[in-house]
Amino acid sequence: MNKKFYILFTLVCLSFSLIAQESWEVIAEENDNLSIIMFDEELELSGQIIYDNSCKSCHGNPEKADFSKMLPEPGDIASESFQNQTDGSLHYKIRIGRGAMPKFEDALDSEEVWNLVAYIRSFNKNYIQKKPNLEGIVIPKFSLALSFDENIDKLVVKTIGDDNNPMSEVELKAYIKGSFGNYLLGKTLTNEMGIGYFNVDAKMPGDAEGKLEVIVKARKGYGSAKTMQKMIMVQPSTFESAIKGRHLWSTAKQAPIWLKVTFFFTIISIWLMILYVVFGLKKLKKYS
């Protein structure tokens, strides 16, 4: 009875997972999305590094099918189910995520996701990269200027097109650079003045001058821009070393003074007394 139930349960789960996999639909526009950069070894290598760091824990080693046992199955990136998808579909799924598959949109930028796609494709010998039809499409060119408005605690990002006019409707993402990843301040679209604002928490710890390292990524159509800048945005902070001061757990050199004094005073005075007796015994000879 139990066994039957178990089998039934597994079947139900399996079918669910299959259905689930089937039904991960990608909107047409995303599905047809293509990289404007040619996939080459360089891209594959950068993709591999990202893969090893962020994807391998679930998807395992490519071509080995040693992915995690999860439901739905993460799958092997070299497998057909992956390779049969379009570049755009892979790009979308990595970015958006679903269920146990994390959403990487905020951790990786679009180019990095393309690098991943390039790496996934490197396991497919028959793959021929589809090129986007860029005829008639204007690729916007623009640059970014950052400033900080301390009256309203807002990071101000200005987009300026190559015609020196502000560019509106640019998707902006701003990050604070951390040791191991970038903290998303927010996403916004530039207004008609070509400006986007981001709230900055004044309580965020900065460096000794109150500086934070800001990364802003911008995208409009096929055009993109990125900039990184250290700016004074918060109160300066000072960081104490975790081992400052004298503690019982400090190194021998940093031992508490009271302990050093007590210890050495006790030991030395006892040994002086011992030596006093030892040398005193020499006096016995005087009387012999």
Partner: peptide, 18 residues
Amino acid sequence: RKFLQNIGVAGVGAISAP
């Protein structure tokens, strides 16, 4: 990198190092 078409993308090539 080889672009599919010879178009410059402004800003790309700025810093992306984490």
